[in-house]
């Protein structure tokens, strides 16, 4: 039988929301193949994440829990994921930084074809085809994978997070596969985390993104707007490169891809690499002092103005609108 394996992503013992997008894909693919899906939870002290995974309607939740998996390193994770994955028709995860790093390495280990960052599953007579954005989202390719095990990563913004399904899956431990020589030549030194009280960029209902124009006043200007809207902050590459915003906030072809109900582009010109990461947002608002900026070609509401004047004014009026 053709089954699907979801490779879960967890942090500090909890499932990351990315996992739920891969589960949505797995439900669709398992149905198309007439099979079932399992979830592999891998790491150290992941019992909590495994418990959360049980609610997602999988046939089985497999758990690889071992001290050697404490820090995520693809060199240590890939052997176990590939070994478990061998028994499945499709191995899927989400194209987060973790998924991009790990799944391609798993594909290398399995000798499998890899469908990266897909935005849609198409089923044709029981075979799976994948639609994936290419050329910074300016074309879609329709492709399929010809190896016995197919490795897939899904775009989080294109697969809505799966809701709990009511049931409670069986749990089974799986053996950890000893890594190869690569693992003895790599070591995790530190993780400098950017702490934020705001919603995750990829999950937020509203994103307030700023560009190079904000300069050192990035937070001074945008924080009040983001606070008022309970929004996540985002940034253009230029704002990240210049150090106005942390790199983790970059939206675009090679940053995070988001599609929130409401997106603000403040002082962002709208280069194609930026558009690739946000043009599927439902409503786009752009503020730019240059009326010809390309961002206005995708914006539902464009305001040609100096952001340093209008953003504080916008905050004031939004607060008033909320109160009223």
């Amino acid at each position: 039988m053709a089954n699907v394996l979801v490779v879960a992503e967890s942090a500090e013992g909890k499932l990351r929301k990315t996992t739920h997008s891969a589960v949505t894909f797995a439900r669709q693919a398992a149905q198309a193949l007439g099979g079932a899906f399992s979830i592999l939870v891998i790491g150290h002290n992941v019992a909590g994440a495994a418990e959360e995974a049980r609610a997602l309607g999988a046939d089985k939740v497999l758990v690889a829990d071992d001290a050697s998996l404490k820090d995520y390193l693809a060199e240590r994770y890939a052997p176990t994921v590939a070994e478990v994955g061998k028994g499945y028709a499709v191995v899927v995860g989400t194209a987060s930084a973790y998924g991009k790093d790990l799944l391609a390495r798993v594909a290398g280990r399995l000798g499998s074809g890899y469908a990266a960052d897909i935005s849609e599953l198409l089923v044709e007579g029981g075979t799976l085809k994948y639609k994936r954005p290419m050329f910074a989202g300016n074309a879609f390719g329709i492709m399929s994978v010809s190896t016995p095990v197919q490795v897939v990563s899904v775009r989080q913004s294109a697969f809505a997070a799966a809701e709990p399904s009511g049931g409670s899956s069986d749990v089974a431990p799986v053996a950890v596969v000893a890594p190869g020589a690569a693992a003895s030549r790599i070591e995790m030194v530190s993780f400098d985390q950017v702490k934020s009280e705001r919603p995750e960029l990829t999950e937020a209902k509203v994103v307030v993104a700023g560009g190079r124009a904000l300069k050192e006043r990035f937070n001074e200007i945008l924080d009040p707007l983001a606070d008022t809207l309970t929004a996540a902050l985002g940034a253009s590459r230029a704002a990240c490169d210049a150090g106005y915003a942390p790199s983790d906030l970059q939206v675009g072809q090679t940053g995070k891809v988001v599609a929130p109900p409401l997106y603000f582009a403040i002082g962002i010109s709208g280069a194609i690499q930026h558009l690739a990461g946000m043009k599927n947002s439902k409503v786009i608002v752009a503020v730019n002092k240059d009326g010809d900026a390309p961002i206005f070609q995708v914006a539902d509401y464009g305001l040609v103005a100096d952001l340093f004047q209008v953003v504080p004014e916008l905050v004031k009026q939004l607060k008033a609108a909320k109160a009223g």
Binding site: A97, I186, E187, M188, V189, F191, D192, P246, D248
Partner: peptide
């Protein structure tokens, strides 16, 4: 550069 920050690795 990863989600949530920067991871430093030592590779040989």
């Amino acid at each position: 550069e990863v989600d949530g920050g920067v991871i430093t690795l030592r590779v040989k």
